[in-house]
């Protein structure tokens, strides 16, 4: 008998998680977005893989539903690549959970991801992951405001100098 950390019977858990994901379709259908059962299962598997890869363990229903519901109204997603997009978002979420040293809550992290994705990244996952969230994670680790942007500050300084001239 082992007391190694493990989840309950994986099959049962995944089955329950898939049905919870599929329930979200009722809300996302208003935005013409839906996942098939196969895609929902793939999403749940992505979550399990990400948890394993990033050395994390999750209890309860997890964050998939929160991600789906938060990003449902984004203007940069269509049904075409919807599943692929969600898979990437889930992976990005767990990666930055580690990078921010668990100092930021689930809701705040998903909210920040949404804000940048719809805002400065204009729908680019690469910009979200490699630029905005990296900077945000660095700010959190240094105890700065998550939105602090030294590039923005120096640009403003340069503009002010130009105005003076």
């Amino acid at each position: 008998m082992s007391f190694e950390l493990m989840l309950f019977d994986n099959f049962l858990i995944e089955k329950q998680a898939v049905s919870e994901v599929l329930l979200c379709n009722k809300i996302t259908e208003d935005y013409s977005l839906a996942l098939s059962e196969e895609q929902a299962l793939e999403l749940v598997e992505t979550r399990s893989d990400s948890l394993k890869n990033y050395g994390r363990i999750e209890f309860g229903s997890g964050i998939i539903e929160k991600v789906i519901l938060t990003f449902a109204d984004t203007p940069y997603i269509s049904q075409y690549r919807y599943a692929e997009f969600l898979n990437e978002l889930v992976e990005i979420f767990y990666y930055f959970k580690n990078e921010t040293l668990d100092l930021i809550s689930d809701d705040d992290l998903i909210g920040t991801m949404k804000k940048y994705f719809d805002g400065v990244c204009q729908g680019s996952l690469d910009q979200l992951k490699f630029r905005e969230l990296e900077r945000m994670a660095k700010n959190v680790r240094l105890g700065l405001d998550p939105d602090y942007n030294d590039l923005y500050d120096s640009e403003k300084l340069r503009e002010a100098e130009d105005d003076d001239e």
Binding site: L51, G55, E58, D102, D106
Partner: peptide, 17 residues
Amino acid sequence: TERFTRGKSSSVRVEIA
């Protein structure tokens, strides 16, 4: 774990768990 994260995070690092 939920008490540890004060309900703010559904996942924790394996070492913490």
